[in-house]
Amino acid sequence: MRHKKRVKLHWLDYLILAVVIAFIGVIWFRISGSLNYKWQWERIPNYLLRWDEEEQRWFTNLLLQGLINTLRIAIYASILALILGTVLGIARTAQNLAIRLVARTYLEVLRNIPPVVVVFIFFFFLSEQLIAALNMERWARGIARQDDIAIWEFFFGDMRRFPSLISGVIVLALFESAFVGEIIRAGIQSVGRGQREAARSIGMSWSDEMRFIVLPQALRKVLPPLSNQFISLVKDSSIISLISVQELTYKTVELVASTRMIFEAWLTTALLYFILCFGLSLLFRRLEGSGAR
């Protein structure tokens, strides 16, 4: 039977903890005293969940709506980024020089331009054009007018905001796919050259070699960095609030503008992001641990 090793705190740990507490105390005093700020924490729960007297049930309010939308965007964008990133990673290791150059150019450009600039470029030059070409806004409004749209709202939220949601997903996925592509490329190149040569010696084509030999091994090796990238994607989703996507950061801006609860709103938002990202970190750590057994 294994006994868990007790963690002993060093005097330096206590010192760091004391400094952190003192820092928080000073900030709190400065806000309350010098700025003459009136805290209104009692109002925050109402912006997470609100009680409707007419229907006699709870509804999600601004902050919780934003958190749910952030989770939706992160899931859909991560799926699309994984698909695009896998294609880019394979292209980076292709035998054809032109394909390698195109994939590398895409990756290097996105990795060396500030995210905000990338978001605006993709939004105005690609995402908006695609939504207009597919007439997605008219289609979404038609869905929103229907009576039974519970399944649509579960997956996409308010259907009147569907084009905005899709814009955010596309922009975020295109940006994150550059980082996923490099992770996939590293995973592919980590597979031993001898295995690939053995596959060719028995007559396997390049596509079969990638499908049956390389990618299954590469994906197992890249799962930890892909998990970290998903958590980064959740945090990076705050950037798309700049293009009016109704996620958590955007909803917080709305809340601050209407209530002037600057510190309460942003501290609550920071806590929600922390809970979501830390929870995902623990989940991925457990999955990695169970997969290693």
Rank of each mutant, 00 (worst) to 15 (best):
Ile170Val: 09
Arg138Phe: 14
Met159Arg: 03
Leu287Tyr: 08
Gly279Phe: 00
Leu9Lys: 10
Ala173Val: 00
Gly192Trp: 07
Ala186Ile: 02
Ser78Cys: 07
Gln65Val: 15
Leu255Met: 00
Leu9Trp: 05
Leu107His: 10
Val7Arg: 12
Ile202Lys: 05
Val256Lys: 01
Pro216Gln: 01
Pro224Cys: 06
Leu276Ile: 06
Ala81Trp: 04
Arg50Cys: 09
Trp152Ala: 08
Arg50Gln: 13
Arg285Glu: 15
Thr269Cys: 00
Lys5Glu: 15
Phe179Lys: 01
Gln146Cys: 07
Leu248Asn: 05
Glu254Cys: 07
Ser78Tyr: 06
Glu197His: 03
Gln56Thr: 13
Ala94Arg: 08
Ile75His: 09
Ala77Lys: 00
Glu53Arg: 03
Glu54Thr: 15
Gly192Tyr: 00
Ile99Lys: 08
Val19Glu: 10
Leu226Cys: 02
Val117Gln: 04
Thr105Ser: 14
Glu55Gln: 15
Ile27Glu: 11
Phe230Trp: 05
Leu35Ile: 11
Ile83Phe: 04
Leu84His: 05
Leu12Ala: 13
Phe162Ile: 09
Ser34Asp: 15
Val118Ala: 09
Gly279Tyr: 02
Ser290Val: 15
Phe263Ala: 08
Leu242Gln: 12
Ala77Asn: 05
Lys38Cys: 13
Ala98Trp: 11
Val234Ile: 07
Cys277Glu: 01
Ile73Ser: 02
Leu283Ala: 14
Ala140Ile: 04
Ile240Leu: 06
Phe23Ser: 15
Arg145Phe: 14
Val214Asp: 03
Val245Met: 03
Leu35Val: 10
Trp39Phe: 10
Phe120Lys: 02
Asp52Asn: 03
Leu82Lys: 01
Val20Asp: 12
Gly33Leu: 09
Ala186Asn: 04
Arg43Ser: 12
Leu174His: 04
Glu55Pro: 14
Thr93Trp: 00
Ser241Thr: 09
Ile79Trp: 07
Ala218Leu: 00
Ala81Gln: 03
Gly187Ala: 00
